[in-house]
């Protein structure tokens, strides 16, 4: 693979560090009521693995690689689609009281 971006050495470490802080910051200030949907949402986000599996399967040069790649794409697609559906279903249900809508942000 000859990618346009070549991520090596310290550039990779910078990306790891910044992304790690991003994840930490996002979860750190979340009210407990959203922990389950957010766990499910982050579960959905790592479903991005499906694009890597697609690359692996498209570049498969032997039957063994095709079989493994096929399962990779299958599992990755399941992770992404399943994660999306259950997260969406959970978040759909969160509603504030009608009378106190204005204070909802403070929760």
């Amino acid at each position: 693979m000859d990618p346009v971006t070549t991520i090596t050495g310290f550039v990779a470490l910078y990306i790891f560090m910044l992304a790690a802080f991003t994840g930490y910051e996002i979860i750190g200030r979340v009210p407990a009521i959203l922990h389950t949907p957010l766990m499910s949402g982050s579960n959905f986000v790592h479903g991005i693995v499906v694009v890597g599996a697609m690359w692996a399967l498209l570049n498969a040069g032997s039957t063994l690689e095709q079989v493994i790649g096929f399962f990779g794409v299958l599992l990755g697609a399941g992770n992404a689609a399943g994660g999306y559906v259950v997260t969406e279903r959970m978040l759909e249900m969160f509603k504030p009281s009608d009378k106190r809508q204005g204070t909802a942000d403070k929760e």
Partner: peptide
């Protein structure tokens, strides 16, 4: 990690964000 192997920045970033958020959770 596999994102790094494939030189796929979307996988690196999404995976790391989830890795750290999941660890904190």
């Amino acid at each position: 990690f596999e994102g790094f192997v494939l030189q796929n920045p979307a996988m690196i970033i999404a995976g790391t964000v989830v890795g750290s958020a999941g660890t904190l959770l």
